[in-house]
Write a protein that binds this DNA or RNA. Structure first.
Lengths: 330, 330
DNA sequence: CCTTGGACTGCAACCGGTTGCACAAAGTAT
DNA sequence: ATACTTTGTGCAACCGGTTGCAGTCCAAGG
């Protein structure tokens, strides 16, 4: 059916092992033999069968990319970058979605385990303990989670949150609601820590919530009840949902309440008011995570942790606190 | 290293072939032998190696999913659904992004060819001829493209565009700009056909454009020059970019110009004004496409073409033509 | 001239499963 | 009791590559 290494060997009058080496160990074969073999292979449209190769070498040249929700706009740029970078290393990427469910996540890792050289775990919902157990079976690189002894790519939301709180404080806000996402989220904890350390502002926590527009929408009531004049939301979806919920209740953003999101998804730029948000370097994270994975699959280097900077992008959803504005414009 | 079928065979006192059959041909093995073997396998944490299995059976249980741009919000719901449905059939999904480049697309298909049982081509940029040539090597299912003799999942944008034009005509619009996407797009052609067939409205074509916010933004000038009072955009991103561009020029939506998008991406609901748009059943398309692929890989049935309905979702970006409104509210 | 070593290439085992075939045991028809 | 099925299992070849080992050829060194 498909053209195999034996077809190439026959057509070029050498043994299969020579063909094999022409592809995967060029220095072991005579230069002109090699070019001849490659030419024949090209002519026949031969491509090595990766499954067969994986069987002997133990390297599949596949990586698994596991995310909680592909449709969450935070992930696609990361997936895109990871997939592109994987191609650079001649790797293919399995993408799998856990639907935010830790059990699905674990099962996914188990089935993927033997078909990949490593797994990229993006904002995993699994416990540290579970992840450490599974790591016996397959190398991991985690994104936005810190697990000791495990390579990771972190985005510095803590610093971003700090800057956001300063920004809000500078606008005169003194009581700020932190609208969190799912329980046990690493980024959520970083935001919480930043909030706890903040001087001059008082932070009230609202949550946990679903990390979606719905979650934000549902949190609107409690945000109003909290008496906060500004909000730092778990992510942009929550922020946008929240703005929608506030709007429905006749509360204006930023006139009545300021809102800051996290991620800088496309909709943050498109929405009106345009969202002030902490931009996450998702594409860079995807690229670097793949590099770490490929590298950690190849060598036994010490696990690297990359920390990427975030950036506060100030747009239209934040403004001076209501009282101050009135005072400023007599 | 990893536990293999031989480990299981040894531990349960049977031959490897019996273990193999316990998994993949249950009816050929004694019921109690089978349960014993499965129990041992479970205890050892055995999972069959798919690469090895693929080698003999010729079925990889992988499918390739090729899209032009993962980050384009049209695709993630489709990818998510496809991936979930694949799991139902015990398939894994490679996701690959062509960056809108036909050459990349072709190369991707070539490298994936032997590692998958079939490829899902979503809104391919490749020519029909090229696709027909490649199909010798691997079964395809195409989404939003019609190629004779090839299974396909189509979303009926034509009907959607017709309804959108009727909706606009009903609001008094007589001159409508059709802001297209990339040259040679199937959905673009359907929209064009629907526009050409429209009675009572005059349609002017603006394009081609990039299928992105940038494309829409860049088209704003030409839309204004066209003298149209309403716009049907290639997709929601273009529509949102266009609205932004109009807004920058002091033109209001829907007060001055009405805009209809296509896709119903998340941002369409979040944007203000909320976008009137033709909702595409992307999740259903992903699910059905996988079913067709799995089925066409298994049997040699006649290629099926599934056509899915679209729905016009009327929100806030469309309204009565400016003159009429004035007349209606004296 | 013989030895040594390097550069190539072939041979064959092996990776982890699947599957056609042979065969034994048990059940059924005659 | 004999012949014929049926059922369950083992044997071994095979899928398409990789790789350690051995053998050949030739150039350089002694």
């Amino acid at each position: 059916m498909a053209v195999t290494i034996r077809d190439v060997a026959r057509a070029s009058g050498v043994h299969v092992s020579t063909v094999s080496r022409a592809f995967s160990a060029p220095h072991l074969v005579n230069a002109e033999t090699r070019t001849r073999v490659l030419a024949v292979a090209e002519g026949l449209g031969y491509r090595p069968n990766r499954a067969a190769r994986a069987l002997t070498t133990g390297r599949t040249h596949n990586i698994g990319l596991i995310v909680a929700d592909i449709a969450n706009p935070f992930f696609p740029p990361l997936i895109k970058a990871a997939q592109a970078q994987a191609r650079v290393h001649d790797y293919h990427v399995y993408v799998a979605d856990t639907d935010e469910d830790p059990r699905t996540e674990e099962e996914l890792i188990r089935t993927l385990r033997r078909q990949v050289d490593g797994v990229l775990l993006c904002s995993p919902r699994l416990s540290n303990r579970a992840i450490e157990r599974l790591r016996e079976d397959v190398p991991f690189v985690v994104v936005n989670r810190r697990i000791r002894g495990m390579p990771a790519v972190l985005m510095d939301v803590g610093a971003g949150a700090r800057r956001a709180l300063e920004h809000l404080a500078g606008l005169g806000h003194r009581r700020i609601a932190l609208v969190l996402g799912p329980r046990g989220s690493w980024t959520g904890r970083r935001m919480r820590a930043a909030a706890a350390a903040a001087r001059e502002v008082e932070v009230v926590v609202v949550g946990p919530n679903a990390p979606t527009e719905q979650g934000g929408l549902a949190a609107a009531e409690r945000v109003l009840a909290s008496g906060a004049t500004a909000v730092l939301a778990y992510n942009d979806l929550v922020a946008l949902g929240l703005i929608e919920g506030l709007y429905e209740r006749g509360v204006r953003v930023p006139e009545d309440i300021s809102v800051v999101g996290v991620d800088d998804i496309g909709a943050a730029r498109l929405n009106r008011p345009k969202l002030t948000t902490i931009a996450m370097p998702t594409a860079a994270a995807g690229r670097i995570a793949v590099d770490l994975l490929v590298q950690s699959a190849a060598e036994r280097a010490a696990p690297t942790v990359a920390s990427l900077d975030t950036e506060l992008v100030i747009r239209e959803s934040t403004g001076p606190v209501a009282g101050r504005r009135a005072a400023g414009a007599p």
